[in-house]
Design a protein around this nucleic acid. Sequence first.
DNA 1: TCCTAATGCTACGATTTTCGTAGCGCAAGG
DNA 2: CCTTGCGCTACGAAAATCGTAGCATTAGGA
Lengths: 122, 122
Amino acid sequence: MARRPSPSPRAAAPLPGRRVRGSATGRPVMAALDLLGRRWTLRILWELRAAPLTFRALQAACGGVSPSVLQQRLGELAEAGLVGHDGGSGYALTPLARRLMPALLALEGWAAEWAAALGRPR
Amino acid sequence: MARRPSPSPRAAAPLPGRRVRGSATGRPVMAALDLLGRRWTLRILWELRAAPLTFRALQAACGGVSPSVLQQRLGELAEAGLVGHDGGSGYALTPLARRLMPALLALEGWAAEWAAALGRPR
DNA sequence: TCCTAATGCTACGATTTTCGTAGCGCAAGG
DNA sequence: CCTTGCGCTACGAAAATCGTAGCATTAGGA
């Protein structure tokens, strides 16, 4: 692992884009649905579920997402308090994010049913 | 309600776009994560959870999404066997999609925790 | 020390997706 | 007939995403 988060004066570069335009009108579910309904967000949380990953490992696990998008999503997730930069071991889920795991596990179970139903409607 | 799915001879216009480019490499979870990780997909399923909705009602419930996007998402969801066109009463969740509800409910519960944690770290 | 390899992350143009609005054909109500 | 509301599509503009190249930095070895 190289490049620890030493006091490099970067940051402050919010990356192009960044808008809210979310549909989060009121209830917290909406906000969650909006945050998780962005591309790669769910996938990132899923890949991080077992162990922390470095930036590049995470990128590889997600099938080679563009580093710019990964960086943006990671920033959003960090701002939402779902991932942290566990110095040295890369990015990791926060306890709060870990409490989302039951839902993701339920999703995994459902996905199996779904695949079975989809592969055998004939 | 007007406009029942009578034998109108148009259709056959699959709408521009439509690509797969998904990250679904292997496991069914990936495919689910990919499908649900598109904008509005989760929201659509959520809004449909209680009762069927007409196209326009669904559009309004989703904060006025573009009808083109809504149409595309609805098509993808229909192709995935998650929503159906329950003639007369609009779009409705299939039994398969209804089995996804526990996961969404878990998500809702988590969202409450999340909002509480986010709104009170100060 | 100098070199190599690997890391986190950014820039930038190209491609794809999403948005916003206007509008068609149709069915029901008056 | 005329109005209203519906499902849905077209199309140009805006935004998100992709893909690749590359910088700066660090660790390890020769």
